[in-house]
Each structure stands twice: as structure tokens, then as C-alpha cells.
Design a protein around this nucleic acid. Structure first.
Ligand SMILES: [Zn+2]
Ligand SMILES: [Zn+2]
Ligand SMILES: [Zn+2]
Ligand SMILES: [Zn+2]
Lengths: 149, 149
DNA sequence: TCTGAAATTGAAAATCATTTTCAATTATAC
DNA sequence: GTATAATTGAAAATGATTTTCAATTTCAGA
């Protein structure tokens, strides 16, 4: 966490941006949750500790946190932009349940390798990717089965 | 194309929805382009032939077209929802250029196979997936190189 | 073919996430 | 310390999408 804060400060300095009380509080709130928070959820969290911090500042700071490489957007199929920790977290993809909305984080080195090769074959230089598999989780399948008994 | 229209009509009937002039015109406009259209772009296309059709109707009909399995959303990294033909079109994934926004459609059966296996391993039943690889296309890489000479 | 209930329409207003504006405040290089 | 350039919060603006609602249309059944 101390490390992330340093990364954030360095990123700000590089861009000639200021290290403010608000920005640090918002970063802290973000680091304090392991959930995939939406901007609004994070605002609510920040507000509990620091009611004086405004909505716009949270939005603006989230962009900075992303810019510093500390967060990445995840798309759970709804239209809301959610963020997960990026720094110190290994890359992963998602299995997302169409019924209950829950998701699993997964990683398959073979797939990653093939993705790399697939891109290269097209003379394309990959930087990042998103792989989201939508379907039904075990629980929701069981519920479905039981419902039809 | 006739086939798609039948699929659409069947889907409407099943849901107790009506087959209207507007819906058919909008579907036709959608089928007439191979581009990945945004809702707004499609509205503009529809409007050329049928200026009396409203914005909301296009939006509503696009949901129905998706519901009928004739279109799927593609995410090119901007926040706009775009649609591509689904019916009679093989599944594919995208390589999307971060510089120029152009994209390639790609398909790798090995990856598809591994995705399936990955999901199963988690007792997850996959229905569909999205795999988007972001990076730099050949042209943009060349431009970059030339710029630094 | 006619009728009526239910679905659909277009236009405008509403919504919702996100972004911008702007005057007041704050961080930081000197 | 002080100047100045960046940042802030609140409110307004934006832009995509959705809803509202009175008028119109579809279509199943008579
Ligand atoms: Zn991956
Ligand atoms: Zn589930
Ligand atoms: Zn695929
Ligand atoms: Zn490019």
C-alpha cells in the first residue's frame, strides 16, 4: 500500500500535478477495498470518512489512479465502469454469471500465450486485453435444475 | 436476409410483440450495412429512407434485434455501444488499435477450445464471450517508427 | 371485413453516468 | 513568504439511453 502511494505520487509529479489531501484520501479508499468498485460506490466510501470531498473530485482522481497504472476498468456487462486494483495484482480474466452477476477471476497461461501469437500473426502489437466469458455459475445452474424438479 | 427477417418475426411473435412497419425498416437498415454501427449511426441511416421514424423507436428496435440473436454488441474501447451482425456470421474476436481505432476480426479455434475448458474447470457453463485485444496495428507502428527517424 | 384490447409509436421529458465550468482555495517552486 | 499554476466543490452541461404519454396501429377473434 505504501508502494502504491509512492507510485501515485510519482505519477502525479511526472505530469506536473499536485499531491493533494483529497487525492490521497481517495486513493486510500480505493486501496482499502478489494471489490470492483464503480465510481459512485467509491464516492460513497470516500464520503463516509471525508464528507467534504466532492463527486467530481472522485471521478477526476479515479482517472489519475488509472493513469498511474494502479487500477483498470472491468466490464461486467452492465454499462457501469468499475475499477479493480492493477498494481501488484496479476492480470486475470473473468467468468461472469448472467443470472446472479457474480464473477470469478481466472487466468490461463496457455490462452495468454495464444493471444500473443494471434496478435503477432497479424503484425499487431498487443498491449492489453479483456477476456470476459459470460454464462452460468454453478449455483445458478443448480437453482435452475432444482426449480424444474 | 430473408432468413434474418423470418428470425426477427418469429422472435417478436414468441414474445407477443407486433410486427410493425418501423421495426422492419429498422431491421433492414441494420442488415444493409456491414459496419459496426452505433445506435445513433443506425438512426441516421434509417432516417434517410424513413424520416418519420423516431429516435426512441430505433433504440427500442435495436434491443429487439439483439434479443432475436441477430446482433451483438462490440466494445471498441470508447463508451459507445456498437452492434455487429450475429446471425449467419461466425463468432470472432477483435484486435483493436489504440492509436487509430481500427480493428481486425480474428478467430483462433485453439483459444476457443481453451476458453471452453477453462470455464468447465470452474463448473461454469459458458454461453458467450468477448475477447478484445488492444494494441497497435501495423500502420500505426510504422508511422511511429517513421516519426522518430 | 370489422372491432376492441393490447402493443407501439414519436416527441419530449427524464434519467444516469460522466464531464465541464468557474470562482474560490491550495500546493509548491522560487 | 509569495506568485502562479493546479485543484477544488457545487452546479450546470453533456451525451447516451430510457421513459412517459396521448395518439395510432396491429392483429386475434367475431
Ligand atoms: Zn488474460
Ligand atoms: Zn450465478
Ligand atoms: Zn472468441
Ligand atoms: Zn492503428
Amino acid at each position: 500500500m505504501q508502494k502504491e502511494i509512492e507510485v501515485f505520487k510519482d505519477s502525479l509529479k511526472k505530469a506536473n500535478q499536485k499531491i493533494t489531501h483529497q487525492r490521497l484520501k481517495i486513493l486510500q479508499s480505493f486501496l482499502n477495498t478489494e471489490k470492483h468498485v464503480s465510481c459512485d460506490e467509491l464516492y460513497q466510501m470516500v464520503r463516509r470518512q471525508n464528507p467534504e470531498i466532492g463527486y467530481a473530485t472522485v471521478y477526476r482522481t479515479l482517472k489519475l489512479i488509472q493513469g498511474a497504472g494502479l487500477a483498470r476498468e472491468v466490464d461486467l456487462g452492465d454499462k457501469i465502469s468499475r475499477l479493480e486494483h492493477e498494481y501488484g495484482h496479476k492480470h486475470h480474466d473473468h467468468l461472469i454469471c448472467l443470472e446472479c452477476g457474480k464473477f470469478l477471476e481466472v487466468f490461463d497461461p496457455e490462452i495468454e500465450e495464444l493471444q500473443e501469437r494471434l496478435a503477432k500473426k497479424q503484425n499487431f502489437t498487443p498491449v492489453r486485453h479483456k477476456m470476459d466469458i459470460f454464462g452460468y455459475c454453478q449455483k445458478c445452474q443448480e437453482k435452475e435444475r432444482d426449480g424444474h424438479k
